[in-house]
Design a protein around this nucleic acid. Structure first.
Length: 342
RNA sequence: CCGCCCUUAGCUCAGCCUGGUAGAGCAGCCGACUGUAGAUCGGCUUGCCCCCCGUUCAAAUCGGGGAGGGCGGACCA
């Protein structure tokens, strides 16, 4: 595969690449590596799925892919996960991520999984962290993490150390590319700024877009109805999509279109399938799309009505999520990871 | 170690002084209108008033004790 094709795969459906020039230079090298970290906090949802789906692109482009299960981070960020649940949640995250990678048509076995506690407690790592703490101001660390770390009137130190650790993780995992949602931008810009001061390479950054919430605006971690959960059953998926904010002809803040663009179409493309919209004869009969762009065009023109779009999208997402949900049915893993919710 | 402040609906808070069957905004839910949702109308739900003990006919409210959280002071050989 030539460098241009690799660059297209790595860069497609992303929000931003820092920088394009550095990425192209990197992809000219033999074995570039990319990593993404997930703090095992709440249950995984469709937002995670879109970032994980892209790991298939990275693998196809020939990158070494590492997924960090950032267990310490899950506790450092306002104790989102109780310390005693870190192990169960880490195991749940890994299992869920593997399930999503499979649905995306890639082999989870090609991904290296690492847990934060496996290397973030080492003497070498700790010493580097202390040295970074010594020359990073409170306000710099605060600013870097403001979009990621839970904000509070009485913030604990953990949220500040969090940003430095995430920066150091890039170097500790020897990743050439730091990948994550665009909300991670502040932290990785800090990494690009301070890692060279400590003898490490400056990482190339690839950021995924954040999906809009199903009720419009940003997706909310606390609002169940604003997003699909990985374990939603088919009826719930259909109900949530049916209730989604989806103004005719509008692309902005349209979660339904975003789900199609960043998740459904890439997967259907991998499978060689098209997206079929069943439509009553009175409105013109069924439609089929090979590419997202064609669908968006007809949605904007008014040819494709939201009600018809929702029906097809709900069915399709229900199908995509089914194997993931089934993987956890009858498993104790979810109950162990989230005992208070069961 | 000392002092002060806070704790009431999912969230932000009012009510407490002057005891009398717990409120607002937002959120949520349900209808109407839209071939979806939203917006807009109309309606509705929600509570260990942090815990314990006491005073009282009656305590979110008064008194005592405790817990959790916040802020400040002191100590600085």
């Amino acid at each position: 595969m030539d460098t241009d094709e690799r660059a297209r795969l790595v860069g497609r459906n992303t929000e931003e690449v820092v920088t394009e020039e550095e990425l192209e230079a990197l992809l000219g090298q033999p074995d570039p590596s990319v990593y993404i970290g997930y703090a095992p906090t709440g249950e995984m949802h469709i937002g995670h799925f879109t970032t994980i789906r892209k790991l298939a692109d990275f693998l196809e482009a020939g990158l070494d892919v590492t997924v960090l299960i950032a267990d310490l981070h899950a506790h450092l960020d306002d104790e989102k996960s109780p310390f005693d649940l870190l192990d169960a949640r880490s195991r749940y995250y890994r299992e869920a991520i593997e399930a999503m990678v499979e649905v995306a048509g890639a082999d989870p076995g090609e991904i290296e999984f690492v847990r934060g506690t496996e290397f973030e407690l080492s003497e070498e790592y700790t010493l580097s962290l202390y040295r970074m703490m010594a020359d990073t101001t409170l306000s710099r660390a605060q600013r870097a993490g403001s979009e990621v770390v839970r904000q509070s009137d009485s913030p604990a130190l953990g949220g500040l150390v969090y940003t430095l650790m995430q920066s150091l993780d890039v170097a500790a995992l020897d990743a050439d590319i730091a990948y994550g949602g665009i909300d991670q931008r502040g932290i990785y810009m800090l990494a690009r700024e301070i890692l060279p001061d400590h003898g490490h390479e400056k990482p190339v950054c690839v950021f995924a877009p954040l999906l809009s919430g199903l009720s419009g605006g940003k997706m909310s971690a606390s609002d169940e109805s604003s997003r699909l959960s990985l374990t939603d059953d088919p009826d719930t998926v259909r109900e949530k999509i049916d209730g989604a904010y989806c103004p005719a002809g509008e692309v902005e803040e349209n979660g339904v279109l975003e789900y199609l663009r960043y998740l459904v179409f890439p997967i259907l493309d991998e499978r060689g399938e098209s997206f079929v919209v069943e439509r009553p004869e009175k409105y013109g009969g069924d439609l089929a799309y090979e590419r997202y762009e064609a669908l968006e065009e007809e949605f904007v023109s008014g040819e494709l009505h939201p009600a018809d779009l929702k029906g097809a999208t709900g069915e399709c997402l229900a199908d995509l999520l089914a194997p993931i949900r089934e993987r956890f049915s009858g498993s104790e893993l979810l109950a162990e990871a989230y005992p208070e919710e069961c």
